[in-house]
Structures are given as C-alpha cells and as structure tokens.
Design a protein around this nucleic acid. Structure first.
Lengths: 133, 133
DNA sequence: ACAAATGACACTATTAATGTATCATTATTC
DNA sequence: GAATAATGATACATTAATAGTGTCATTTGT
C-alpha cells in the first residue's frame, strides 16, 4: 500500500530543494544532480507542477523553475491530487448480498472513518510544515 | 491507493458467508454462486485461508471449508497480512540530502503517525465485529 | 547562430494485481 | 471399485498501474 507514489515523492524533494534556494531559478539539470532522479521523469513531473500552478517556469538559457506560491500554500494533498488523483483510501467492497446482516456491516463505515482521519491528518501538511524545525 | 485489495475483499466476503452458515461445510462451488467471483481465483484464496489456519478444509465429495477459529479471533489484519503482506502505509522517502533541514523533516514522522493511527483503527476489526448489528 | 533551457506528447518498460489452467489427491456414493 | 465432486499444489497468463524514455518544437540569453 502506497500512500505516496514515486512521482509525488520526487515532486516533494524537488520542491524542497527549490524552497531551500528561493530567489534563484532552478533548472532540471541542477535538480537531477542534487536529487539523483531520472532526468526525463523529473522533467515530466516539474512540467506538471508548472501546469498546475505550483511552479512558474522560465524557458530559454538560464531558465528553470521557481515557486508560484508560498510554501505554506503548497499542500501535500495538492501534490497527491496532481500525481495520484483524488484522495481515496479504498473503494467500497461488499457490493453483493451474502448475508442478511450485510447491509449494516461495519466495514464500510470503518474504512470511511479511517479515511476521514487520514485525510484530516494529511490535509494540514504543507511544503512549509515540512521545513520548519 | 488501496487499503484492501481484491483478494482480501473476496476473502472477507467468503468468510462472511461461511460465518452466516456455520455448522455446514461450504464448497467453492456454493461460494461462487453466492459471491459471483471467479472460481479459480476464489479457490486460490480459500486455499491460502486454509494454509494460514483461518479455515479448515475437507477434501472429497461434499467437502469444502469451515472456520478454523471463532469469528472474533479472525482479524482483518490477519487477512491483509495473508494477501497483502505486512501492513505498511508507505516507505520512507527523502532518502537523499537536498536541504540542511531535511534530516529533521516532518514528513516521515507525519507518515509514521498516520500509519500508527490507521493500524490501531484496523487492528480491532474482526470477522465478528463486521457481523454484529 | 548556438547553446541550454522548457513545452507538448507519444511511447516503452517494469511491477503488482488479478485471474486461469492443469494434474494430483481425497472422500462419498452407487 | 468406478464415477463424481471436492480440495492441494503449482505454474502460467492477463491486465492495470507505476515508472521511466525519447523526440521535436519553442524560447531566451550570449
């Protein structure tokens, strides 16, 4: 079970580096050196971050990326949404009737309640909150 | 993101049906009719439940499966363990240094704390708790 | 003009999840 | 004791999700 996939992970690391170097424009080339990630993959990821308004991109020589928002406004959930789609712990199971008790079975509500808790916990995490301390 | 995979799901449904029909030996053939799952897949699943001491199996004509333990002793976590391996929300990310703050970054501890909560929530769910009410 | 960067986007590879098939063994029934 | 209906063991196949690559176009600084 993966709460966070590789692309979200790379995105966080890249953003993390960019935050630590605010004021400069950071190129993929530089990021790849720092993060040791596959270059074309990282390009795709950064492009998506651009499209989704997390980063601003600058073309041409000396180009690269800068933050488009403040770190405190970049939520982990945003990134997960971009790379992993809408946050959802699990689909409903028990679609078919196999037991008279089943309609009242607790599994769905248990899962829902777990999902809610995880969501609440995750939804406060921002790029900024990952920095401080 | 899937908390529970298809095989765990089928296993729960099958066990659920078996619980609701305790006293009888239930064959795959009967289960497939009830649950509308692929037969060979369900066979594999039930076999694993047998190997792992959740079910007792009876070969030969009129054979099938019965519970090997009481429903209150069959934990969702047991099933997840069997079909999905050790419970783990996510691997540690941020393996490489990209920022001086990073070693103290909160992501790992956030994930760990989420994992802990989910684990606690899930660990009380048993086949029995899925039945009542 | 050239080099170094991103934009757009199609393609490929790998892995995990899901599902199938087959032959052997066991037990019941006639 | 043969037929039937079940599981045991195990290898194989398919599908979907994840991860990663490649290419051509465009932009910009020197």
């Amino acid at each position: 079970m993966k709460l966070i996939t590789r692309d979200t992970d790379y995105a966080i690391r890249a953003l993390n580096y960019i935050v630590c170097n605010e004021g400069r424009t950071i190129s993929i080339t530089e990021l790849v050196k720092e993060l040791d990630t596959p270059k074309p993959f990282l390009r795709k990821i950064l492009q998506l971050l651009g499209i989704n308004g997390i980063l601003k991109s600058y073309k041409g020589k000396n180009g690269g990326f800068r933050l488009a928002r403040e770190p405190k406004e970049i939520f982990l959930l945003d990134l997960m949404q971009i790379f992993q789609g809408k946050f959802k712990i699990s689909e409903c199971i028990f679609k078919k009737n196999t037991c008279p008790n089943q309609e009242h079975c607790l599994l769905k509500s248990e899962i829902d309640s777990i999902e809610k808790i995880v969501f609440e916990k995750i939804s406060v995490i921002t790029l900024k909150s990952l920095q401080k301390k």
